[in-house]
Design a protein around this nucleic acid. Structure first.
Length: 166
DNA sequence: CCACGGTGGTAGA
DNA sequence: TCTACCACCGTGG
């Protein structure tokens, strides 16, 4: 059972999806208009509470601040490798970054840095599973599923300095 | 700057 | 199985 609901922010309307286990997906604003409903109708009380937590967390990160708390994250969709990558990324504190290679080394697959990139691209909850803090070695940006323009913007708000000038 | 080879995980056929 | 993708990385022109 899935509930899909908009999350309004000063940067646009994100779209959250919830399973019975918690937040299962988060999409960055797409150019196109979402439906205009408030998003609270028809949601069970539990999901409404998770939605409120999600909204506050998203707004905090967008403002470059650490969220006070997160809803439960439902990452059950990924493979074991992907989940281990996502778990590792969750440990990158706001204001810091790691490289794809460092993530690979941390999960004891030092040669799988390329696959780490793939797992980042498959991350269902970008922003709250902060794959924007994962950069290429040598200062490159890498990619970002929500649109590459977000990556340097988010990092700048988090106070990260050396986000590569090209 | 560019090209290339060595990589590991995934999806699809 | 086989194969063709990749948000990689180091080395060498």
């Amino acid at each position: 059972m899935k509930f899909i609901t908009p999350i309004e922010t000063p940067d646009g309307t994100f779209t959250a999806s919830f399973s019975e286990r918690g937040l299962a997906g988060l999409e960055f604003p797409s150019g196109r208009r979402q439906r205009a409903d408030a998003g609270n109708v028809d949601l069970p009380a539990q999901v409404r509470q998770w939605r409120a937590l999600t909204a506050r967390a998203v707004q905090a990160v967008l403002a470059g601040r650490k969220p006070a708390s997160l809803p439960p994250l439902d990452l059950s969709g990924g493979t074991e490798f992907q989940r281990s990558v996502w778990e590792e990324i969750r440990s990158i504190v706001l204001g810091k970054t790691k490289t794809y290679g460092q993530i690979a080394a941390a999960i004891r697959r030092p040669r799988a840095m390329r696959a780490v990139g793939g797992a980042c691209g498959a991350n269902p909850i970008p922003l709250l599973v902060p794959c924007h803090r994962v950069l290429a070695s040598g200062g490159g940006l890498g990619g970002f599923s929500g649109g590459l323009k977000w990556k340097p913007l988010l990092l700048a708000r988090e106070g990260v300095k050396s986000v590569s000038a090209r």
